[in-house]
Design a protein around this nucleic acid. Structure first.
Length: 597
RNA sequence: GCGCUCUUAGCUCAACGGAUAGAGCGUCGGACUUCGAAUCCGCAGGUUGUAGGUUCGAGUCCUACAGGGCGCACCA
């Protein structure tokens, strides 16, 4: 409704400008927001018309205002701020309408229909089945989950898919190490979570590999000993056996995959991540060969003399890329081609978003181009949501150096910290389920931390300092809502106190109230913007601004003892609407809502 | 070497091409007999990596340079 008003003003001012400048063709008027609320609610800069008019922008603003003031114009007060023509709206007179809209829409307030009728597939996570999740995966998962929610909120039908990387030489490495050094132990016998158990053998392999390399470098007698086993050669052999369907290898593979996947599922559950459909690389890795053959027939790919199939990428200023090896086997790229085609068959999408780290920018550029060469029109609707690395203060996380931040450990540690906070504040009773509340606080802190940064930016994570519960954090947002809930509860408990008293939006006249009303009104626009740009950080900073304004407001103004019952009831309706907005926003960025904490 | 990308306060991050570049953390100093102090208020902290250019207007767009990251496999 404020938007409509702004557009009415834009049209009115443009019409006046045409009149003033004596020409029909004028630069489009831009709609801005003044830096301070006392300067008005909408800003129209007059700079672009200075040359045409041969007058200073400030003078134009004055003249246009004068002539507009004489006519009937849209609702609002015209202000002059130097070269800007600003409009102030009567926010209190709109507040009843704003608040009742929120009330009516409830859980779906903020939802828009820009993507109505669109089917969007979102691929994210894509773990290997040889180790547990780490912080890098968590950024991927938070983003994937959040973007999926955003797209739904924008009206799309969304299918979340995961591709489990459960085959390849790296998987064989953990299997081989287990075979060599496992002595038949299992997650049950050691009491470990399955993914951590398997991950330990992946690390064990790396250790073994290092020892072998050292032995080779030292050229010691061991290397020539017939009993010397080269780990890498052995892993390759195992991969071959796997591909040939060797019973023993396949059985071990099934067993270890299950261990890992059980562990990963538990992590996903704890993190609030879920998928609508799982794809397994063991099923998809051979897909794509027929697509490549089709491309050969179409003449868009070329068979080299050595028998490999390649694609010429010079039209997109790249070199060339092999799509089938000379022995006819498939590659990562081949698989992704096949998987994309299969996915479109499985669930014909209007768009497919790959949430994958920026290291793979090249891969996706090539993939999308190849699919378009194959004539798939939907290739234009593929999107790589490329996000930056999560680094440690001392640099990149390295599994070999043991600097990887484990997802389960981090979550457990944060939960423990949150529990400590609850206990330190003596909130156990008020909170009820302490463990569950602590988990939700930890999750809120983590998701907010990961999503407040724009996806494409690299970010630095300091395990000691990064995640706090104070300041610009998830728990601060949760706390804000818990406070609102607390006030609303109290109001209910004073049963009868406010009976028959009507809220009157015109009473909401102070700056914070107007700021909150404008923010509440702009929530749907914020959702739209975030969804269309696949950027949850827009929601995060929007929610933070609201929490900040509320805290300030709360500090300076009484709600239950506002002076008159009418004012109390009106303020209650304002904070209730704010809570709805916050809650709906929380859903979009994986911050759990808490009644009390 | 080539390509992509990034560089904003001590640190972590914001800022539809628009007005005096903002938050949090950290430092220092204030505010709880008042609806929850996981809060609020204040002080200090900046030549937006450097040099040019486009524009009425540039942290934002273009070019060059410096520095960081990531790619440039018949690995995934």
């Amino acid at each position: 409704m404020l938007n409509e008003l702004k557009i009415e003003w834009k049209n009115a001012i443009e019409a006046e400008l045409r009149n003033y400048l004596g020409t029909e063709t004028i630069p489009e008027l831009t709609i801005g927001v003044p830096p301070k609320s006392e300067m008005g609610d909408a800003a129209f800069p007059m700079f672009p018309y200075a040359k045409l008019a041969g007058k200073a922008p400030a003078l134009i603003a004055k003249d246009v205002m004068a002539s507009l003031a004489e006519k009937t114009h849209p609702e609002g007060e015209i202000l002059i701020a130097g070269p800007y023509l600003n409009i102030r709206f009567d926010i209190p007179s709109l507040s009843d309408e704003i608040l009742s809209q929120v009330e009516k829409a409830g859980d779906s307030y903020g939802y828009v229909n820009d993507l109505a009728g669109k089917r969007i597939m979102v691929e994210f996570s894509c773990p290997n089945t040889n180790k547990p999740l780490h912080l890098g995966h968590m950024r991927n998962d938070s983003l994937g989950e959040s973007v999926s929610h955003l797209l739904k909120a924008a009206g799309a039908e969304v299918l979340k898919v995961n591709l489990i990387n459960n085959r390849g030489v790296h998987i064989c490495k953990s299997m081989l190490a287990y075979k060599m050094f496992g002595n038949g132990e299992t997650p049950e016998t050691t009491g470990e979570k399955g993914d951590h158990f398997v991950g330990r053998y992946y690390v064990r392999f790396a250790q073994w590999e290092k020892e072998a390399e050292e032995a080779k470098a030292a050229n010691s007698g061991r290397v020539n000993d017939p009993s010397f086993i080269d780990p890498d050669t052995e892993a390759q052999k195992m991969l071959k056996l796997w591909e040939d369907g060797d019973k023993e290898v396949r059985d071990l593979w099934e067993k270890m995959n299950k261990w890992t996947l059980d562990g990963l599922s538990e992590s996903y559950r704890n993190m609030g991540i879920s998928f609508d459909k799982l794809y397994y690389e063991s099923d998809t890795y051979k897909l794509g060969r027929s697509e490549v053959m089709k491309g050969l027939d179409m003449g868009v790919f070329k068979k080299e003399e050595d028998g490999s199939v390649q694609v010429d990428l010079s039209p997109i200023s790249l070199d060339k890329k092999v799509l089938l090896r000379r022995d006819g086997t498939t590659l990562y790229m081949t698989q992704d081609i096949g998987t994309a085609v299969k996915r479109h068959e499985d669930w014909p999408f209007d768009s497919l978003i790959y949430v994958v780290a920026s290291e793979q920018n090249y891969h996706f550029k090539v993939l999308f181009y190849v699919l378009s060469l194959l004539g798939y029109k939907w290739a234009e609707e593929l999107h790589h949501l490329s996000y930056g690395m999560v680094n440690l203060p001392e640099g990149k996380m390295k599994s070999r150096e043991g600097t990887v931040v484990d997802a389960d450990d981090l979550l457990a540690e944060l939960t423990e910290l949150a529990k400590g906070e609850i206990e330190a504040k003596g909130r156990e009773e008020a909170v009820g389920d302490v463990a569950e509340t602590a988990r939700k606080i930890a999750l809120g802190a983590l998701n907010y931390y990961l999503l407040q940064v724009q996806p494409q930016h690299d970010m630095i994570f300091d395990p000691k300092k990064s995640i706090s519960f104070n300041g610009n954090t998830g728990p601060y947002l949760q706390y804000t809502c818990a406070r609102i809930s607390s006030i609303l509860r109290k109001a209910e408990e004073e049963n009868g106190e406010y009976e028959g008293v009507e809220a009157d939006g015109k009473l909401l006249v102070n700056d914070d109230e107007k700021t909150l009303l404008k923010a509440i009104e702009s929530f749907p626009d914020t959702v739209r913007k975030a969804a269309l740009s696949y950027d949850p950080s827009i929601i995060a900073s929007y929610l933070y601004d609201n929490a900040k304004t509320f805290s300030h407001y709360y500090h300076d103004n009484q709600i239950l003892k506002a002076g008159t019952k009418e004012l109390s009831v009106t303020r209650l309706s304002l904070i209730k609407a704010l809570r709805t907005v916050m809650k709906n926003g929380f859903d979009l960025i994986g911050v759990p809502y808490l009644e009390s904490m």
